[in-house]
Simulated assay, not measured.
Amino acid sequence: MQQDRNFDDLAERFNARIYDTLKGQLRLDILKQDLEQFTRTHSLKVWDAGCGAGQISLWLAGFGHQMTLCDISAKLLNQAQQDFAEAKLQADFHHTSIQQFPPQLTQFDLVICHAVVEWLATPLETLKQVLDRVKTRGYLSLMFYNRNAMVYKNVIRGGWRLEPILNDRYIGVGNKLSPPFPQYPNEIIQFLQNNDFEIIQHSGIRVFSDYLNSESRNQTNEQELLALEHQYCRQPTYRDMGRYVHLLAEKKSPNG
Rank of each mutant, 00 (worst) to 15 (best):
D210C: 06
L10I: 15
K153L: 08
R27F: 06
L44W: 04
I188G: 05
K251A: 04
H202K: 12
Q100S: 12
R243P: 08
V111P: 07
D9W: 05
Q201K: 12
S57H: 04
N15P: 00
T39D: 07
T122M: 01
W59Q: 09
M150Y: 05
Y211W: 03
W59K: 07
R137F: 13
L26G: 05
E125H: 04
Q193M: 11
V207E: 09
L44Y: 09
D240P: 00
D168A: 14
K252V: 10
Q33G: 08
K88Y: 11
Y184W: 11
F63Q: 07
Q223R: 12
R17V: 14
I18A: 10
G138A: 05
V245L: 03
Y184N: 05
N175S: 14
G158Q: 05
Y19P: 02
V116S: 03
L166I: 02
F191M: 02
S57R: 03
G50L: 02
C70F: 00
K23V: 14
I165S: 00
F14W: 15
A49Y: 03
Q33L: 12
E250Q: 14
Q104I: 10
T21L: 07
F38M: 02
K45H: 13
F7G: 03
L69N: 06
L22P: 07
L131G: 08
R27T: 08
I18V: 14
F101G: 03
D240Y: 12
C51S: 15
R169K: 15
L60H: 03
N255F: 13
G24P: 01
M241F: 12
F101S: 04
A149P: 03
Q3V: 14
R161K: 15
K45I: 01
K153D: 14
Y244V: 08
F93A: 00
V117G: 03
K251I: 02
A53M: 14
G158K: 05
F144P: 03
M241I: 01
E163W: 01
N154R: 15
